[in-house]
């Protein structure tokens, strides 16, 4: 509640559902059910219908796939940063690892996408977790710095050793059978990831994760190994990232060192900050907003990076709660001025 003048203050009043506590509602009418379901349905139906609506614009259908790729990364980033307390600036690592594993399985062993994607997801997530395992005791800034280093390091190594196709990457992969399969696969994954994680963070396991973030000493004293949970958190984020990477490889029918690139590290962060950290859905909304902007600016080359770096700065400095938190507050409460 912000005090603006001395004799007036802003008051916030809950609306919509009469009886509720933190996340538990006593629903008593259709109006209330609608009130609760409407925002969720807008998101779900919006994403599900988007490919149909965009049928006439194949280019934007492709953009939709990109949105989903970034959304998966952003969900992972948000989960890891706001529920486990590990800020991983290196989303490119997951994408790259996922893409390369899928590409190798596809090009060397001829496995079809419906085998390579799941295998790359799990194997890649395992690999990323093992890579990051020594860094897990690090906190805050230090973990952020190290995690930023890995995606910078990987392309240099691939370049220097000239493995996996070197700077050319691995080309000629199988695509998905059709655009529809591609879109709905991606959208399905995003929706499942978002709602599954939102459920998980409110369960008891989620509380343990939050404990690891806020209060690791107390968690240790409670007989729980924080490294296990941090590793589990990284694994979950890596599963999402590697899934996105594997799909990306098949969407482009190509895997290369640019998939360790800056875009995959910075856009998910920007999307999470813009959408609202700690809400998971905010990360998706952020991607829905930022990725098309980035596509529109594609003609201007690297200006798009500058643009979303500025958007990111603006949000983190002036509106750090993000869109989702703001909108939720407006939706669930109304504000009024009261005299004191």
């Amino acid at each position: 509640m912000s005090v603006v003048k001395q004799d007036r203050r802003k008051e916030r009043v809950d609306r919509g559902i009469k009886v509720r506590t933190d996340g538990v509602y006593a629903v008593s009418s259709w109006a209330e059910i609608t009130y609760l379901l409407l925002p969720r349905m807008v998101l779900i139906l919006g994403l599900l219908l988007a490919p149909v609506v965009l049928t006439a614009f194949p280019y934007w259908q492709r953009v939709l796939s990109h949105i989903c790729v970034y959304a998966l990364l952003a969900i992972g980033f948000d989960f890891l940063a706001n529920f486990v307390g590990l800020v991983s600036l290196g989303g490119g690592l997951y994408i790259g690892v996922g893409a390369y594993i899928a590409a190798l399985l596809n090009s060397h062993y001829g496995l079809p996408p419906y085998v390579t994607v799941p295998v790359a997801t799990l194997a890649g997530a395992g690999l990323c977790t093992v890579i990051l395992l020594p860094c897990l005791p690090l906190r805050g800034v230090y973990f952020a710095i190290v995690s930023l280093m890995f995606p910078l390091l990987a392309p240099r190594i691939i370049e220097a050793l000239d493995i996996f196709g070197g700077t050319d990457g691995i080309v000629g992969l199988d695509g998905f059978p059709s655009g529809w399969v591609e879109q709905y696969l991606m959208i399905g994954c995003v929706l499942i990831a978002v709602f599954a994680l939102r459920r998980m963070v409110t369960e008891d396991v989620g509380l343990v994760f939050r404990g690891v973030k806020d209060n690791d000493q107390a968690v240790k004293a409670s007989g729980i190994d924080i490294t296990t949970y941090k590793a589990l958190g990284v694994f979950i984020a890596a599963v999402l990232g590697c899934l996105a990477g594997a799909c990306l490889a098949h969407i482009y029918m190509w895997a290369g060192i640019s998939q360790f690139g800056l875009d995959y590290s910075i856009i998910p962060i920007a999307a999470t900050v813009v959408g609202g950290g700690g809400t998971l859905i905010g990360a998706v909304i952020g991607c829905v907003i930022l990725v098309p902007i980035s596509e529109l600016l594609r003609d201007f080359g690297t200006l798009r990076i500058a643009v979303y770096a500025l958007i990111l700065t603006g949000f983190i400095v002036y509106k750090s709660e993000g869109i989702m938190t703001y909108v939720t507050r407006k939706y669930e409460q109304f504000e009024r001025w009261v005299e004191i």
């Binding site: 396991v205 343990v208 968690v219 007989g223 729980i224």
Partner: peptide, 11 residues
């Protein structure tokens, strides 16, 4: 809810 974390432990 503070006790959920210790109650979640193996012990």
């Amino acid at each position: 809810k503070n006790l959920i974390v210790p109650l979640f432990s193996r012990r």
